[in-house]
């Protein structure tokens, strides 16, 4: 049964890890705003157009194709 001592020790280390993770998440402000991240996650990644800086203005300003974003 002495293996129990090791197991208890391990389980506490694990649990303390979670407690530290929780405290860290509160400290870094993750609990301050529980709405905005739920919206943010639905945004598509921002696709930077491959437009070299020396191209004429007209080309650079081309509006992105609407179909490439799937808004919801």
């Amino acid at each position: 049964m002495s293996v129990m001592f090791i197991l208890i020790g391990c389980s506490f280390l694990l649990a303390i890890g979670f407690l530290i993770a929780f405290i860290w998440s509160v400290k870094s402000g993750q609990m301050d705003d529980d709405y905005t991240p739920s919206v943010r996650i639905l945004f598509d990644d921002f696709n930077e157009p491959i437009a070299p800086k020396n191209l004429p203005q007209e080309v650079k300003n081309n509006k992105p194709n609407k179909n490439q974003y799937h808004a919801n």
Binding site: A15, L19, V26, M31
Partner: peptide
């Protein structure tokens, strides 16, 4: 935030 810490600690200890 302080309350969050207190709840976190109490919950952790309670469970264990």
């Amino acid at each position: 935030r302080r309350l969050s810490y207190q709840i976190g600690v109490a919950g952790f200890c309670f469970g264990n």
